[in-house]
C-alpha cells in the first residue's frame, strides 16, 4: 500500500469542522454589488466590517498567540510570512507582533479620512483600489495564521462555525471584486498556504462558487 503522508490532516479540513457554518446558503445575496450603488462605497464598507469582525475573533485567541507559541508568522507547515521593515528588508517577526502591525496599519487606514473618506464631499483617492488589495492580502494572512496555528483553540471555544463563515464570506467577497490573488490563497508548491486546501474543499462542497 502507498505510504501515507506523515502530516495528519489539519482539523479545519476534517469533518465535521470543515462543514461547520453559521451562515447557510449562498453568499451572493450579501456579496453582490447592489444596483446603482457606488462600488467604492460598497467595498469600503465591507472591508471595514471584515476588519472589525476579524479583529474581534483574533482578540478571542490572542491569549494563545504569543512569542513562545508563534515565534514566526506561520500559515502552513513550510510557510512563514515575512514583514518588510523600514530598511526594506524581509524580516521574520513573531506572529503576535506581525498581526499587531497589520491590524494597527489597517486601523489607521480606516481612520484616515484621505484613504477611507466618511465626511460628505470627500472622494476616494485614486490609489484606493490598490490600497484595498494590499489590505485584503494582509487580512488573508491573519486568517491563514489563525487557521494554521489556532484552529484547535477556536474549537475549544466553539467558535468554528462563526469563524468559518466569516472566512468563507471574506473569500467570496475577495473573489467577486478581484481583491484576492490566487497565489496568495494557495501559496507556492514548496510553501503552500494551509487554507489553500480549505478554499478547494469549500468549492467542492459548494460553500464557495466556481
Amino acid at each position: 500500500s502507498p505510504r501515507t503522508s506523515p502530516i495528519p490532516r489539519p482539523l479545519y479540513l476534517s469533518r465535521p469542522f470543515v462543514e461547520a457554518a453559521l451562515v447557510k446558503g449562498n453568499f451572493k445575496t450579501i456579496v453582490m454589488l447592489p444596483k446603482y450603488v457606488d462600488i467604492m462605497e460598497w467595498v469600503a464598507m465591507n472591508i471595514f466590517d471584515f476588519y472589525t469582525n476579524l479583529n474581534e475573533f483574533y482578540g478571542v485567541i490572542a491569549e494563545c498567540c504569543t512569542q513562545q507559541s508563534c515565534p514566526t508568522m506561520m500559515a502552513g507547515p513550510t510557510l512563514s510570512y515575512t514583514w518588510i521593515n523600514q530598511e526594506r528588508k524581509n524580516v521574520h517577526l513573531p506572529a503576535p507582533t506581525y498581526i499587531d502591525y497589520v491590524m494597527t496599519w489597517i486601523q489607521n487606514l480606516l481612520n484616515d479620512e484621505a484613504t477611507f473618506p466618511t465626511k460628505s464631499g470627500h472622494d476616494f483617492p485614486q490609489t484606493f483600489p490598490s490600497t484595498v488589495k494590499h489590505v485584503y492580502r494582509q487580512m488573508l494572512r491573519v486568517f491563514a495564521h489563525v487557521y494554521h496555528a489556532h484552529f484547535h483553540q477556536l474549537l475549544h471555544l466553539r467558535s468554528e462555525p462563526h469563524f468559518n463563515s466569516l472566512f468563507a464570506h471574506f473569500l467570496a467577497f475577495g473573489r467577486e471584486y478581484e481583491l484576492l490573488d490566487m497565489k496568495d490563497v494557495k501559496g507556492s508548491s514548496s510553501a503552500p498556504v494551509g487554507i489553500g486546501q480549505l478554499y478547494d474543499r469549500w468549492r467542492e462542497m459548494g460553500i464557495l462558487e466556481g
Binding site: 469582525n53 474581534e56 478571542v60 474549537l155
Partner: peptide, 22 residues
Amino acid sequence: RNLKEFSEGAMPKAQSAQLKLE
C-alpha cells in the same frame, strides 16, 4: 472540547464575538 488552557475570560469573549457576528 475543554477550556483547560484558557483564561477565565476567554469563553465569554468568544461568546461575545459570536453574538456580534450573528
